[in-house]
Structures are given as C-alpha cells and as structure tokens.
Design a protein around this nucleic acid. Structure first.
Lengths: 159, 159
DNA sequence: TACCAATGTTAGCTCTGGCTAATACGTTTC
DNA sequence: GAAACGTATTAGCCAGAGCTAACATTGGTA
C-alpha cells in the first residue's frame, strides 16, 4: 500500500491490523475492569461494552487464542503480560485523545468521539497529539487565547 | 445511546449513519473525479479507490438508490445535487483534517491518516479542528513555537 | 442435596463490503 | 459488419462482528 493511493475506509482499517478495532475495545475494557481485582468476568465485560454475552464469548476466545488473555470456559478473564501491556497502552491512548478533545472544547459526545478516534490514528499521530496537548498544558495563556478564539469564531460564523 | 456508555467501534460506526464510511469514500472520490468533466466512470472510480470494479458497481448502485448519484447500467456516474453537496462537504472535511495533521507535523502516511480520521469525527469536532487550524494560521509565531516544541520533545523523549 | 437464578456457550442468522470467475455490453478497428 | 478489447455486471464466496434462541454450567440457598 503505497503512500499516495486512496483506499476505502475498510481497507485502511484492515491493513496493519493484527488486532482489529473491536479487539482493541475489548482489551481496553478488560484492562479497565481488571484494575480492581486483576480480572473480570464475561458478563460484566459484555455489559460494559453494551453488547450481548455471546458476542463477548466469541471475542474473548479469540483473544485467548492470541495469548492476550487467559481464559477457559466459565472462568475469569485475566490479561496476560502482553495483554496488559496492550491494555495499558490502549487506555493511555484513550486518555490522550480525550484530553485533546477537551482542550479544543468538545464536551458533547466526548466519550464517543474519543472511542472512534482512538482506533483510527497511528502512532506518530498519537505522539503528535500528545505533544500538542503538552504544548498547551505548559502554556496556560496560549490555551486561554485558543479557547477565547474558539468562542469568538463560534459566535461570528456559521459553517 | 446515552452519553456515558461504552460501545464497540463497530457500533459507533453504524449509529447515526445513513451513509456508511465506505459510501463516503466513494462519494468523495466521485466528487474529485468529476471535477473536470462533471462525471466519472466506474472503471476509473474503482482504480482510484484501489478496489475491483465489481465492488464499485455494487456501491454505485446503492448510491443511485439513495439518489446521491445518477447512474444507469454501463453509463457515466454523475452526482445529483444532493450528492454534490455531500461530496463537496466531504472534500472540505478531508482538507481540514489534512491541514491539521500537517500543522502538527505529520508527513508520513498523511493521506492514510486523513482518510481514516475523516470518517470518525463528528461535526462539532470537525468545526473545532477547523478553528484550531485557523488559530494557528493566524498566529505564525505561535505556530512556530509549537513546531519548535514538537521537535524538542521529540529529541528528548521516547514514548 | 437439590434446585433456581445468574452467568456463559453454541449454533446459526444478518449485514457490510471486500473478492474472483464468468458473462455481457459497446466501441474501435480491420 | 465481425472480431477483439476494454469496460461493466452478475453471481456467489469470504470474513468480521453484531444478534437471538436454545442449551449448559455453576454456585448460593432452601
């Protein structure tokens, strides 16, 4: 896939993805839910992701095959070392994007936007976003200026 | 779908989408390819999107059903008035995101990142990005400061 | 201990949007 | 005007990831 060619969204999402977007959602959520006890259960996972248990069963089995979780039928779901690393990365990514969006004034649908964006950006973009966030966070006056600017434009323009 | 619930990526993508991500890709590309002559052909469209002609046929037929393109078998593909509006919106969106990414220093995989992100963000986020871009474009010194900052952090940090 | 409710699994369906193989159309060219 | 080539269509396959219905397991409580 060369640099200058167009592809459809689906194609981009498939490419370079050993781990699909859905798998990432599951991993990140397993990571969150495991933070207390070190594990979670299928039913809770399904509930947290707003999907039906059978869908979770299948995905968790896939993740087990990929050695990202330890799981056997009717048992608890715990991340493997590799799964933990991915989960923690995924959560950090989530927070970076969320912070960025908050910075630029997104409040409505913040979670949803974050969730969608986190699956689409690659590592350099993520790093750039983190730096951008840092940039503003270390320059409160500039951030203030930005936020004032956002408001003004909002008031004066419709597009 | 309430504000505070998690969903998987797929679910977010389906929601609020009369027009799927793929349809958007097609529309945007038809719009681009139509800029010269006012129409394009299936073969060219397929080539431009790096998909096989049969896939394009099916999608174009769908778009015709949705009254976004005028198309009859073996004929030319032209956007309807509504299709044109969407196409032009989609292209503008593409350019906004591309500019934003360039601003924060993305050069590698720029097209791909743009393509992916454009399908995931909603209208408020897009508007916020546009304002952010404007903010920097009207403040060359601040932009310069940002870009210097990016470089410094890059040199000093690894994460 | 035996049963019931809660949790989990299996089987099999749906939809989207890729793909290939085979076929059809339409235009240029001899 | 017929053949050949480029363009487009149809049919039918595949994978991912939802879903429901039906069934299985487990564990707490009577």
């Amino acid at each position: 896939m060369s640099e200058e060619e167009f592809y459809t969204f689906q194609q981009y999402m498939k490419k370079d993805m050993a781990i699909t977007a859905s798998m990432q959602d599951y991993l990140e959520m397993i990571y969150r839910l495991s933070q207390n006890n070190g594990y979670t259960r299928l039913y809770d996972l399904a509930a947290a992701l707003n999907i039906q248990p059978p869908s979770a069963t299948r995905m968790v089995q896939k993740l087990a095959k990929l050695a990202l979780v330890d799981y056997k039928k009717y048992g608890v779901i715990a991340l493997t070392e590799e799964g933990k690393q991915m989960g923690s990365f995924l959560l950090a990514r989530h927070l970076t994007i969320q912070t960025f969006l908050q910075l630029i004034g997104i409040t409505e649908g913040l979670l949803e936007e974050t969730e969608k964006i986190e699956h689409t950006i690659n590592s350099p973009t993520l790093q750039a976003l983190r730096k951008l966030v840092d940039f503003f966070q270390t320059r409160p006056e500039t951030l203030q200026e930005l936020q004032d600017y956002m408001k003004i434009v909002e008031a004066s323009k419709e597009s």
